[in-house]
Structures are given as C-alpha cells and as structure tokens.
Simulated scan of single mutants.
Amino acid sequence: MNALTPLTADQSYLRHFWHPVATVNELEAADPAGNGPIGRTLLDEPLVIAKLNGKYVAMRDRCAHRYAKLSVGKVLENNRIQCPYHGWEYGASGRCELMPACPSDAIPKKAFTPAYACEERYGIIWVRLDSSWDCTNIPYCEAWENPEFKRQIIAEPYNWDSSAERRWENFTDFSHFAYVHPGTLYDPAYSEPAIVPVDRVGGELRFFMEPGRDMLDTLPDDSPLGSWNYRNSMPFSVNLSIRLYKNDKPFLLWTTSSPTSQNSCRNFMIIAHTEDDLPDSQPLDFQKLVLAEDQPVIETQPGPIYLDEVSLPTDKISNQYRKWLRELSTAAAKGEEAFKAALFTDVTESK
C-alpha cells in the first residue's frame, strides 16, 4: 500500500497562533485559591498553567532539576510555582528562584523552564508557543461585542480523538448534515448543499449560507435554523452568527479546537443568545446531542488530513481551508514576512 501524503509536512507554523488550553473556571477549580496549577498539552508540548501575581502564566511542565511535572506542584503565597519533588520554586518568567536544598548557592543559568505568552479572553486561557513574529491575535468572538446578546455561556471543554483540522471541517461541512444530523440540524431531503462564495479577510475565512426556511416544520424548536454567517479566525476557530428564522433574533455558536496533538484535540464552545429566562441547560443539551451524533463518525477518520483524499465541488469550503493551511505552512518555512503575507493577504469572491 502506498504511503499517504499529509496536507502539511511541517506543522510548526501552528506555534505562531494563539490556542486555548483551559477555561478560567477549570483553573479556579484546581485549588482553593483559584491559582492552579493545572497541566495541559498543546501541540504535544506539556504545559503548566497558573495564575501568579494576578496574571495567567504558561510554562513547559517540567522542572529543570529532575524533570518532575510542575503541574503536580502548587502555587505558593509568594506567587511562585513549587515543584512537588524537591521544592524548587519558579517565577512567572520560568526561571528558578529558589533551590531549597542549596539556598545559598548561585542558581545555575540552566535552571529554568520555557515560559510562553499567555492571556485570558472570553473566560478562556490562551497560549502562543512562539511569539517571535508577534503577528497573530486571539480569535474573534462576537459574544461580548453584540449588545443584543443577554447571555454568554462558556461550555465545559470536551476532548475528541481527532485532529483540530478535522474538527474544524466537521463544524463547517454542509454536506454531512443530512446524514449525521437528520431531524436534528437538517432535513435529509436537502442533501445537496449550496456552493457559496468563500473569502479571506484579515486572517479569517468567511462565508454565508441560508438553508431552506421550510425545514422549520421538520426540525425541533431548539435547532438553530436561520441565516448562517461564518467568521472563522485561522486556523481552528469558528464564529457562527445566526439570525434565527423562528423569531428573527441573533444566536451565536462559537467554537475553537486546540491541537493537543496531530490525532487529538480539546474543544471549547461559547453560546450566546437574547433570552432572559432561557436556562443554560437548554442550548447546551441540544449542542451535546449534536456533538454525540458527530463524534463517533469524526473519530473514524485519521487525524492528519491527506492530499490523497477525493474532493467534490460541494467540498469547496474545506478545499479552500486546506489550501490556506498548506500555504501557511509553506510560508512559515520561508520566514516572517512570507507568513504574514500568506495570512493577511485578502482574497474575496463575494460582492
């Protein structure tokens, strides 16, 4: 059997983007003071996440001494992370600031663990592993920008045995609705999706879709049927702004996949709506139903995307997405300016 050809042979370009690693709620639940630490994985890199001096920090989850995991340690009152093995203490920069066994000795230059850019946005903690070019932003989310939204729900993250690329394609794939979500999101009679214009604007992949209004009669009331406006920050975020057919009100589904590895991802979701008295459980339960329909199918796919896969005209969105990923990977190998040009050069089809 011939070997498959991956879409991107080098995925190091992903280190230049911001990725989510945890919710603030998860960190606050990790210890009584709400400072962590907790351990997470991003692009196969073990990370320790904590809050020191009121700021979120991310470091490689490894003490320089005997490589014990700092995430199993604790955050001290002096705003340092203490290694659980020999008590070495690390500040926000990742440098060791105390070796209890030799408190009077000079701390070796090698006594550090790499620290990474770390920020909080939307109740989610984000990390960028390579900030040397400093040209990417935390992905766009409409939930706090639209004054019509009265409620923003930060869902509990969930893990899939699938790549972040596959998860992104699953969320934006119109063709699968009739087969994976019949009677949930779509009427199976509409198995031939529209082929819509796809634009690149400001580092986002944008497109618009209007499914048939007459499907309202066949779908549950919780189904977010309406005009679907997608603003997708590269590489793994989806901001799906919906104008619901049933009441002409806005509804937001926002998701980002964090690439823990080539074969696994951790997924974050925000739901925003206009209803004062709608319990959070109602839209969350419906999305959990949709995810339960998707997950067993998507996890049958291999993690990486391969060039050998057969594509159709109705795969236009994923084809454009794959093309851009490949361009970004190739450009990053050429340097900062090539990467910026590949990410921020607009290409528009829509009028």
Results as ranks from 00 to 15, higher is better:
Met99Glu: 03
Tyr85Arg: 06
Trp18Gln: 05
Met234Val: 15
Thr184Ser: 12
Asp308Gly: 01
Lys51Ile: 08
Ser261Trp: 13
Thr172Gly: 06
Pro84Arg: 06
Ala115Glu: 00
Asp280Trp: 10
Ser71Met: 03
Leu225Ile: 10
Asp280Val: 13
Pro103Gln: 09
Val24Ala: 15
Ser264Pro: 09
Trp18His: 08
Ile38Phe: 15
Gln152Cys: 06
Pro296Tyr: 02
Pro259Gly: 12
Arg167Cys: 14
Glu142Arg: 15
Pro103Ile: 06
Met1His: 11
Gln295Cys: 10
Asp277Tyr: 03
Trp254Ala: 03
Glu336His: 05
Ser163Tyr: 07
Val201Ala: 01
Glu309Asp: 12
Ala143Tyr: 01
Asp134Phe: 05
Asp308Trp: 01
Leu343Ile: 07
Ser227Cys: 10
Gly183Glu: 10
Val198Trp: 00
Ala106Pro: 06
Gln262Thr: 01
Ala332His: 09
Pro103Lys: 05
Gln287Phe: 10
Gln152Val: 07
Leu4His: 13
Arg62Val: 04
Lys246Asn: 13
Pro108Ala: 06
Tyr306Leu: 02
Glu145His: 05
Asn159Ile: 03
Ser233Met: 07
Asn229Ala: 12
Glu97Ile: 02
Arg60Glu: 04
Phe286Ala: 13
Gln295Ser: 12
Pro296Met: 12
Gln320Gly: 01
Val238Cys: 11
Leu52Gln: 03
Gly94Asp: 00
Ala272Lys: 01
Phe171Val: 14
Ser261Thr: 12
Leu216Tyr: 04
Asp130Trp: 14
Pro32Glu: 15
Gly34Lys: 01
Thr256Gly: 05
Phe339Cys: 06
Ile271Ala: 14
Pro32Cys: 05
Lys246Trp: 11
Glu45Ala: 10
Ile138Lys: 11
Arg231Glu: 03
Asp10Tyr: 08
Leu216Phe: 11
Leu240Tyr: 02
Gln282Lys: 10
Lys288Asp: 15
Leu284Pro: 11
Asp346Lys: 15
Asp31Tyr: 04
Glu120Phe: 07
Ala9Val: 09
Trp88Gly: 01
Thr23Trp: 08
Ala9Met: 14
His273Cys: 09
Pro157Glu: 10
Asp276Thr: 05
Arg326Leu: 09
Thr255Met: 12
Met209Ile: 13
Leu325Asn: 07
Ser311Asn: 11
Cys102Val: 01
Ala338His: 11
Gln320Lys: 02
Leu252Phe: 09
Cys141Glu: 04
Lys109Ala: 11
Gly183Pro: 02
Gln262Val: 05
Ala9Phe: 12
Ala58Phe: 00
Val238Ala: 10
Gly212Trp: 02
Val48Pro: 00
Lys51Asn: 10
Leu27Pro: 03
Glu299Gly: 14
Asp277Pro: 06
Ala58Thr: 00
